[in-house]
């Protein structure tokens, strides 16, 4: 027995040590990313194969990566930073960690409100924050806007996750932009009043709670519903099927959208590769992978969203310049704390 144990240790060491890189001249690109979806791993492999560029991937939350880039300063190996929301890209830009990229392909593919006004970041995929309603108990004709969610008829009916979640922060930030800070505070206050329970769990849990009659409405991101509807678990499938999707604010400002986006690091050692990488991610082949396996809305108009998303129909998007989400993020969090949205 003991001998097996020692043998195992030796094998483990060999594996642990074999990671020493060889001294070869290879093209490289270092990616700092907050996205850890399976679709991305497929995309990274594809890019490596097509361009003969080796990718070094550092995977952590955007704020940690931003902090790391700040500490590394001029010597930072990071070439690009990928985040799952526009606010964090705005944060990186404000810290002076990104650089402007002039590129006609980017400008032609990405709508102006979904990229930085100073060309320092671009959106890659879109996600919409929508209302999932119980098909049994709610008539979608009763639904209209985010603003309406604070009305008395939804008392103890609304399910939503913690305000630590960036998508809730972005939603409130967009309300601050569209309606002003006082309105936004009243809204958040009213929503807390209408909550069916104290915020907990993730987006999937909110939908499951609707399915199990804890409340009637859940505020969730679209791609989580997509994933529920494709789950290998029967109860998740049931939960996904029990709700309908409503796109709010169609007659007013449009449904809140956020992007997962990318920026080139200020001190990127491989700037050309970085631009190549962004172009790759925006073109149809990559956009199809984003849309197909992760149920995000592609940013490239030539690519259709996944079937499930298409079935929900097209919708009017909020045309807000997404930098504003970053600008108002802190105010949004302060409002959440004030009104006691956990």
């Amino acid at each position: 027995m003991k001998n097996y144990f020692y043998a195992l240790i030796v094998v483990a060491f060999v594996f642990g040590c074999k990671s020493e890189p060889k001294e070869e001249k290879v093209e490289e690109l270092t990616v700092y990313t907050h996205r850890h979806y399976e679709s991305d791993q497929a995309l990274f492999k594809l890019f490596e194969k097509q361009n003969d560029i080796k990718l070094n991937v550092v995977n952590a939350s955007a704020d940690e990566l931003i902090q790391k880039m700040k500490l590394e300063g001029k010597q930072s190996p990071a070439d690009v930073l990928i985040t799952v929301d526009a606010g964090r890209l705005y944060r990186a830009k404000s810290e002076g960690l990104l650089q402007p990229i002039s590129n006609t392909l980017i400008d032609s593919i990405v709508p102006a409100n979904l990229r930085d006004t100073d060309k320092q970041w671009v959106g890659l995929t879109k996600r919409a924050r929508v209302i999932a309603y119980s098909k049994d108990r709610v008539d979608p004709n009763d639904l209209s806007t985010y603003e309406d969610l604070t009305s008395d008829k939804w008392k103890n009916k609304i399910l939503v996750r913690s305000s630590s979640n960036i998508y809730n922060q972005s939603l409130l930030a967009s309300l601050i932009s569209n309606q002003g800070e006082d309105f936004a505070e009243n809204w958040a206050d009213g929503l807390v009043e209408n909550m069916a329970r104290s915020p907990k769990g993730n987006d999937r849990d909110q939908v499951k709670a609707v399915a199990n009659n804890e409340g009637d409405l859940a505020i969730v991101n679209t791609y989580y519903i997509g994933k529920l509807l494709n789950s290998e678990d029967e109860s998740e499938l049931k939960a996904g099927n029990s709700v309908g999707i409503f796109f709010p604010n169609q007659d007013t400002s449009g449904t809140h959208v956020n992007v997962s986006g990318i920026g080139v690091a200020k001190y990127a050692p491989h700037k050309e590769n970085a631009i190549k990488f962004i172009e790759f991610l925006l073109q149809e082949e990559a956009q199809k992978i984003f849309a197909g396996s992760n149920y995000e809305y592609p940013i490239n108009r030539n690519v259709e969203p996944a079937k499930i998303l298409k079935d929900w129909g097209s919708f009017k998007e909020d045309a807000l310049q997404l930098n504003e989400l970053g600008e108002n993020n802190k105010d949004a969090v302060i409002i959440f704390d004030k009104v006691g949205w956990k």
């Binding site: 913690s162 305000s163 630590s164 922060q169 993730n202």
Partner: peptide, 23 residues
């Protein structure tokens, strides 16, 4: 703690960093 929706000192640490943007 954050999954169970309990705000502890440490969720506060993360909130002030990730949400308020103040490391």
């Amino acid at each position: 703690a954050s999954y169970y929706g309990v705000s502890t000192f440490t969720t506060g640490i993360f909130r002030s960093w990730f949400s308020l943007g103040e490391p």
